[in-house]
Design a binder for these strands. Structure first.
Ligand code: SF4
Ligand code: SF4
Lengths: 162, 162
DNA sequence: GGAATTAAGGATATAGAATATCCGCAAAAC
DNA sequence: GTTTTGCGGATATTCTATATCCTTAATTCC
């Protein structure tokens, strides 16, 4: 059970977009260069964010991406689910139906305990991600990243933001 | 991010093993028939349980598997990790190292905030699974499964337990 | 208006993981 | 000694993640 690397990419890109001045856009090309990622493939992750309405886009030179809402109104789960999908990690294949002792026509009223417990754990994972806002991440990064690196990155981004 | 179906298989098999009388064993063949699963592949899941020391095995006719500990001393996480591995679901590829603004020789003191938050969610998932004991599952199932099915399954298993 | 740049989406190729089967070995039962 | 069993290795198949390429339409700038 491993998350796609696109999840990491999307989270980092959103953190960068959160630092953009009002109304500016940043292109896939810039985001790919900044993170050292394949531009074409990163583009797929950004398209996922776009489809989830987390970011706004615009075309043409000086086009690119910006957050669709304030960074305090976007949480980790929004981003992770946009890329990874909303499906639960445990999928029930209903193997209890294969029990040879099962009476013909027997119909289970509800999902069995195994599935419910696994889904509960899944929900705990989602809850944790839901509680962390993108703005929280930016706050932590701004404290932890070395100030000179933080500032030079910021300048690098602004130079390329349309 | 989807768990292997072997996780479901292992959980169901453990629930069955928990109902075995003291000292009896149940074979892969019986477990595969009971759940309608491919015997050879289910065997791999059971081998994982064995390697994790969750079950004891014995060879020969009347051989098979039994729990290595009481069902109240085995939790869901034990079983899930035995099959799925203990690796975290979020793997950090350290893309921040590709930042072109990064000073040469800069070395990060600790994993960045993105990774820590994702790992925190992972830990919440594990915590939930850790809190549920195998005996809890058996308790729920014994209440929810129709009594006649529960009993006939029990008899079916006993007939094949060595 | 025309050239350049961009996001979007479809098609396709590659790598790796999950799923599944088969075989040979050693231990245990009879 | 024969059968049954768990175990591990080897292999095949299917599916997903990863990655690239190409076309289209919108936008900017000249
Ligand atoms: S997880 Fe529950 S519902 Fe799904 S197959 Fe197993 S017993 Fe049935
Ligand atoms: S998750 Fe954190 S440590 Fe990992 S690459 Fe991203 S910034 Fe770096």
């Amino acid at each position: 059970m491993i998350l796609k690397s696109q999840v990491e990419w999307a989270l980092h890109c959103c953190a960068i977009l959160a630092g953009l001045p009002e109304g500016r856009y940043l292109s896939t090309k810039a985001l790919a260069e900044l993170h050292g990622l394949p531009k074409e493939y990163l583009s797929k992750a950004l398209q996922s964010l776009s489809q989830a309405a987390l970011v706004d886009t615009t075309l043409g030179p000086s086009g690119g991406y910006r957050l669709a809402r304030s960074s305090s109104e976007i949480n980790f789960l929004d981003i992770v689910e946009a890329v990874e999908g909303k499906a639960r990690s445990f999928t029930c294949t209903n193997i209890r139906e294969n029990n040879p002792c099962r009476p013909a026509g027997y119909c289970d009223s509800k999902p069995c305990a195994v599935a419910r417990i696994m889904w509960e754990a899944d929900e705990a994972w989602r809850d944790t991600l839901r509680r962390v806002r993108l703005s929280d991440l930016v706050g932590i990064l701004s404290e932890e990243v070395r100030p000179d690196l933080w500032q030079s990155t910021f300048e690098w981004v602004l130079k390329r933001a349309g």
